[in-house]
Nucleic acid binder design. Structure first.
Lengths: 119, 119
DNA sequence: TCGTCATTTCGACGAAGATCAAAATAACAT
DNA sequence: ATGTTATTTTGATCTTCGTCGAAATGACGA
């Protein structure tokens, strides 16, 4: 990941509501969560949530898909891996390794472990 | 690292100048760099640099010490390790490991490899 | 087609972030 | 004491960020 992308990801996560949203989506795995449910769980007004969701989408940390009349958001594990890789490579010593640590399959409890690999 | 600290660190790094400063300090190792030299290398006005350095200090990512009439700033590797640990534990799947990846000894070239362990 | 549910867009507002020039402080040498 | 260098503080200005209520869009069912 180049600097631009890392800055976008860092900026997107550097806000309490957005960090909460992302963490929530991570625990839900690839199945994701509808906007309304996220708003309910976190106690955020719909308009505000949309604002934050857009920032996260724009940073590539989450993706959006439509299911009926609701919009489902889910975490983009690859982006988090790239961010971690960037940080270990550029903000630690020179010899830092970058083993991918994020895996949707690890989101164990709420969503049944999906066999499909990461997009 | 609790959420508050992670937010502070993310916010501190989510700005181009500050990310540049931190990356520069990381490459310099524990020896650190004087404010004036950082300003020179990055082409930032002194007042602006001070502003950004303060943000980084406040987030715990760098530390300050005085050497004669200059102020030396150096990277706080522990803070970066904690941030990486927080991200892997909270923003990846549940089973993510948190092996400390940052080591000042890895900043090989400019500073002689220090034997003292990470704080 | 009409209503209604889910979500987004719009417009306005205050708060926080970033930048700059100018003045102030701190440390040292003469 | 005085001057010089290194850095910070101050204050002003401008932009960006986050929040909110109200209106608009999109998708579905009757």
């Amino acid at each position: 990941m180049e600097k631009k992308g890392a800055l976008a990801a860092l900026g997107a996560l550097a806000q309490e509501t957005r960090l909460d949203v992302f963490r929530l989506l991570v625990t839900e795995g690839p199945a994701g969560l509808a906007a309304g449910i996220i708003a309910d769980r976190l106690g955020v007004l719909p308009a505000s949530l949309t604002f934050h969701l857009q920032q996260l989408v724009h940073a590539g940390l989450i993706t959006q898909r439509r299911l009926g009349r609701q919009l489902i958001y889910s975490a983009e594990y690859g982006a988090m891996n790239e961010l971690l890789a960037y940080l270990t490579e550029n903000c630690c010593g020179q010899g830092a390794s970058a083993a991918p640590a994020c895996d949707p399959a690890a989101a164990c409890c709420s969503a049944p472990p999906t066999r499909s690999s990461v997009a």
